[in-house]
């Protein structure tokens, strides 16, 4: 009867319950936590300590690269093949 516990799953009937639970779980010190929902519940990701700075940085750097690439399209009579 002493099987190890790999993970615990809980189902919530209401998005707000999920939000409350997420905050509590995070406050208890759990970090390997994920919440699933069929639509975005604002605040849950933040409550679990996620931030999406990676997306923002990727977008920013892609934008800079695209902008610089765009300037390369400018006609240049002197360039060779």
């Amino acid at each position: 009867m002493s099987q190890p516990i790999y993970a615990i799953v809980a189902e919530f009937g209401d998005p707000d319950d999920l939000l409350v639970a997420a905050e509590k779980v995070y406050a208890e010190g759990y970090r390997k936590v994920e919440a699933y929902s069929p639509f975005p519940v604002h605040g849950v990701a933040e409550a679990l300590g996620n931030d999406c700075s990676k997306t923002r940085w990727t977008c920013f750097l892609s934008g800079v690269a695209g902008g610089l690439g765009g300037y390369q399209l400018a006609p240049d009579d002197t360039r060779s093949v």
Binding site: A22, A35, S37, P38, V41, A45, N50, D51, K54, R56
Partner: peptide, 17 residues
């Protein structure tokens, strides 16, 4: 796509951009 909170967060960030 699993609908995880982190998915939604990135999704919304990308979508608004």
């Amino acid at each position: 796509w699993r609908g995880a909170a982190s998915h939604w967060q990135r999704y919304e960030s990308a979508y608004i951009m």
